[in-house]
Nucleic acid binder design. Sequence first.
DNA 1: ATTCGCAAAGTTTTT
DNA 2: CTTTGCGAAT
Length: 807
Amino acid sequence: MLESILERLSEAQREAVTHVEGPLLILAGPGSGKTRVVTHRIAYLLARGVSDAEILALTFTNKAADEMRNRLAQLAPGNRVWLGTFHRFCAQQLRRHAPLVGLKENFSILDARESQRVVQEVVEKLQLQHALISPESIGRAISNAKGEAITHHAYQAARFDPASQILVQVYPEYARRLLAANAADFDDLLMHFVTILRENPELRAEYDRRYRFIMVDEYQDTNLTQYSIARALSIDHPNLAVTGDPDQSIYGWRGADLNNILEFEHDFPRVRVVRLERNYRSTRSIVDAAQALIERNRRRKAKTHYSEKEQGPPVRVVQYPDGQTEARSIAGSIRDQITNGGCAASDFAVLYRVNSLSRVLENAFREYGLAFQIVKGVEFYSRQEVRDIISYLQLLNNPANDVALKRIINTPARGIGATTVKHLEDFAEQAQLPLWEACRRSGTIDGIAPRSALQVVRFVALMDNLHACLTHPVSSLVHAVIEDSGYSTALRDSHDPSDQDRLSNLHELVTAAREFEEHSTLDPTLENFLEQTALVNDTDDLQAGEQVTLMTLHAAKGLEFDAVFIVGVEQGLIPHRRRDADADRDEEEERRLLFVGMTRARSALQLSFAGRRSLHNKSETAIPSPFIFDLPRDLIEFSTASADLPAGAAEGLFDPASSAGSGVDDEYCQEPGPDEPYFELDGERNTRRGDRPARPGGGPASISTAAELFQLPQAFPESSPGSAAAHESSAAVDTAGGQAGRNGQDGTAFQIGSWVAHPDYGTGQIVWRERAASLEFVKVRFCDNPKLRRFAVKHSPLRIVAGPQSE
DNA sequence: ATTCGCAAAGTTTTT
DNA sequence: CTTTGCGAAT
């Protein structure tokens, strides 16, 4: 049993897997088999007799949790280890102990927009509008404070800082409103749990005992609050194992604190540190170039990435005259390699720093008739119409939820205007009642016209009727809300074509509810469904189909592709120029971002920059990113592409296995000529960067307040390494976070470029695909109409008439 | 109460 | 250039 878990692990991997007691830090470089190690370690603990109820595995994203769960299920079928996101874990615990922080167990979870809305209201109410400090930045500041476990009681304004002067007023009122609405924002889920642990030592000890073995994934992304949770549960039983990679920390801007991982050894003395440095994913050229880049960072832990795969072709660095040429050339190259090089579209990814760069690429890909998908951030559950219906459900579940009530009291329009709502609010505030109770008393409130009061009464009756449906299955309740609220009628009667999309999204919500009933491991209650919709986003699934993937560098984390293009590697883009351009700290994070992007590639990698870049329709001269100069000359191949591409010409990124083929036909891809190269990748400039002055900062990281919150005991059991017979079979080729299609829908039929027929609109061509809530959507341009129409493939009468063709 | 029009802004993103 | 939000007008 133990043997079978340990076979096919490298020595370093095995060391991590067999570590049982005591703190463990796994520094896992890209492609080093991290997920494999985590899942195998859990399986190993189980095999050694640890009860599955004693193990807690925390991740940041549902995607990571799903992947781990699936892989663990294969190693330890039927296990009941708690494995999931921080937020879900905390939400569940918070339900149990809600009264300890002034909530009730049926509290609602506000999404980012809703909580921002509340911030805005508070700012207006307190008359704190400030010319330079936007409500958004105040919201961010509150979120940051919560990410450091600073409650509104504890928050102190820095004396002369105008932003914190405002915050010190807004934060408490914001917190008060959320409590009054029996609601928590995302950050609250974690912070309230920390508060509970902090104020209830016996409860903390109980949790500590209950979860004797804790694992935290992507530890470099933890903020102080998350750190505090992990730490609080690892005092009496400090068997905390974290995996992470400081070099892949790219979320500092959202509160992730690199110190948590850099100081782990300090916070947990006698920690075992395992470095997974071998990269099983990429060729040596790629790994070595990425290593050279990341070595320039100072705030990191020494770690040398290496590969024992073949050398592979050098990393290509290409200069294009402008962004359009860049896009076309890449599209041409990919098309060429698909038609001549035997590659599949799904082998390729194009990465960029900012979403706005996707547009040129989109156009070029369309022009070249390539199937592609853009991974974007609009989540199904945050669409307006979906959010509206969810608000009805939230109000049914938690009548105190004023945020939800205000959202839907007049959606769809039912004659309850701003004035009426204002009166209701005033009354509610005066009487210290939820808005909902004010609605019940609308007839008795001064200032509300009888006609308006009647409408409110009808709204109350509507909700009361729906309330009677609470005993029905969630999906029928959702259906009832959509129908009885008048929402579906309003959409059906609308002349705005996009309202039809909205309607199909709502049908999809019913389907999601049904799937939840049938497949969820949780009780299919309304409350659990609401939690699901708040904490899960359905679009982090990539489609599997045959298409090139376009996405931001951030979105690429955890994925891998045979060939990767990174575009716009220019000053101002990578590193990105910010408003408050501060410090090396940011530059290092940007370098890590490029490092993450580069290490997505298995066998071919190209970085490119342009001489001119038009962004927001302004064309400006562009200068190559300084990071380009960090790459060692002997690992890269530099070339310049000229402006006038022969249509359809392509350069080879791959040296295809048969490098003779259509590999590098350099019609517009020459070595930089002697005639004043605009840009020269020169050894001298390259080395000069090496000896720049040492940074003064970087001092000892201040030890987090969490250390004061939760003291560690002086001693804990000596770690006992499992004595597994070590025979090396280092064939462990694992793709950490490797992405496989696990969506049901087959991607072959409805492709970009396919011709389809519709009974009403005639024939048209698919120009866009997307996926939301396990449903596939396409946009179609019909012959007689320039306007795009969007359809849910499953529900639409579309019929394929011809395969993909370029226009 | 809805609709229209104009102004302003425009990193990255999970939960 | 595009999107989004707010304010004025009907």
